[in-house]
Simulated scan of single mutants.
Amino acid sequence: MKNNTIIFRSKFLPISFRIHRHVPYVLLLIIIITLITFIINTSVGEYPTPPFIVVQTLLGIEPINPDYNFVINILRLPRTLTACLVGIALAISGAIMQGLTKNPLADPGIIGINAGASLAAVSLIILLPNLPVVILPISAFMGALIASLLIYIFAWDRGTHPVRLILIGVGISAVAGACNSFMITFGQIYEVNQALVWLAGSVYGRTWEQLSAFLPWLIIFVPLALLKASELNTLNLGDEIAQGLGSRIEWQRGLLLAISAALSGAAVATAGNIGFVGLIAPHIARQLVGGNYQGLIPVAGILGAMMVAIADLLGRIIFAPIEIPCGIVTAVIGAPYFLYLLVQTRRK
């Protein structure tokens, strides 16, 4: 501890960052809120389940009523886990994108990366509905990667400017949205309904099969993001300093771009368009641990899990028994926050 701060270091991952003394208590509170939301989310529904039964089931204790076991393990637990893991992926992807572009307004949903992933996934749902579910994240990753490359190329003019990145991203997103509408127009009714629900951003009806298709992407790319956090810090010092420190700038940018596209693409393929998580979570994390990405990335991931879990819970209980997709809830909260950040950036 020094100057009213705490230096945190991990023995298992290359994470080291300085935080204010009160921050560990705030992070503990966030984790507790996430766990409580997780339990409540798994409890509520058409067949209410007592929270203590949920906790017992999660601890491996078999409930007396076998119906509880089916409702929790088969119907609700995959959905709640998917919500938390999608939040982690979107938040980390947004943190990387903000650091990579040096743009506080960057977010995979706002600048068009998620739109590219959506177009690829919708095309697959409409044209090839019988393909295995594990193919969908691969397709979405390719769409996200192509969209991110197009945005970076079109926005480059002896560097990238925040406003130019936003405008190019909005253009890419509009083109991808128009292509999505075209695909839906000519699709069969069942595939169209599936695509429309998916485009709204929802974890409704998610199964263990879909979750198992999503998990490998997290297992591979979240540790990669943590390992490359120090490189992201180096790139933010400027190209000349980064080169002087021995960083292979273009290689590192390309790798970080691929990591961000993989996480956002896999999240979009699993839960559809859940916007603004990648914008808000890194901003809150930056207020807690500062701009060091070795601390910002994992903290943003925790916040992202909490945000999507709460959004899914609110969508289920506000107008129950009608469910609102969690993507709509995050949009209602995130859009005003984005406008606020836009005004603040303009003033600066």
Rank of each mutant, 00 (worst) to 15 (best):
F186S: 10
A225N: 14
T160D: 00
N180C: 14
T37Q: 06
I310S: 08
S139K: 01
N69V: 06
H161Y: 12
A120D: 05
A266M: 04
I74G: 01
Q188S: 11
G177E: 09
A140M: 03
G295T: 12
L218V: 14
Q194M: 11
L29N: 12
A281T: 14
I324N: 03
A140K: 02
L28D: 12
L127A: 09
L341H: 13
G246F: 06
L255P: 00
L100E: 06
V55K: 01
G201S: 05
L149N: 11
L211D: 09
G291W: 13
F38H: 02
V170K: 03
S148K: 04
D239H: 11
V133W: 00
L136I: 08
G205P: 01
S212M: 13
V175C: 08
G327E: 01
I31V: 14
E46D: 13
R347W: 13
L224G: 12
L196A: 05
I172T: 09
L218I: 15
L105Q: 00
L77S: 06
S93T: 00
G254R: 08
L288N: 14
L85C: 06
V289R: 11
T270A: 11
G301S: 11
L256M: 05
S264E: 05
I302P: 08
G327L: 01
I317E: 03
N114S: 15
I19Y: 13
I328A: 09
P336I: 14
T5E: 13
L256I: 04
E323T: 15
N233Y: 09
L257E: 00
A320K: 04
A144M: 04
A120G: 06
A309Q: 09
K348Y: 14
L145A: 12
F8W: 13
L296Q: 14
S123Q: 05
L81D: 01
C84H: 00
T5F: 10
I317A: 03
L35E: 11
L226G: 08
Q56E: 15
Q287G: 15
E62W: 09
W251F: 07
I172P: 02
Q243K: 15
A262E: 03
V134K: 00
G272H: 05
L58Q: 01
L13E: 11
N180Q: 10
L35Y: 13
P336E: 13
I310P: 01
V277D: 06
A117L: 07
I88S: 01
S10V: 04
A285L: 11
I36H: 03
L124F: 06
V192F: 07
Y47E: 02
R316P: 00
A311G: 06
I19H: 10
P325W: 09
I125C: 02
S139A: 15
G99T: 04
L81Y: 03
I19Q: 13
G275S: 12
I6T: 07
V308I: 14
A285Q: 12
R158D: 13
I61W: 00
A331N: 09
I125K: 03
V54A: 07
R21C: 14
I74F: 07
I310M: 11
F70I: 15
A120L: 08
L313M: 09
I32N: 08
G159Q: 08
A200R: 09
A147R: 00
A178S: 15
G304K: 13
L119R: 05
R79P: 11
A91I: 05
L218E: 12
A176G: 02
I88L: 10
K11V: 08
A281V: 14
I88E: 01
R164T: 12
I166K: 02
V277F: 07
I96R: 03
L35F: 15
I318G: 09
E191L: 08
S93A: 10
S123R: 02
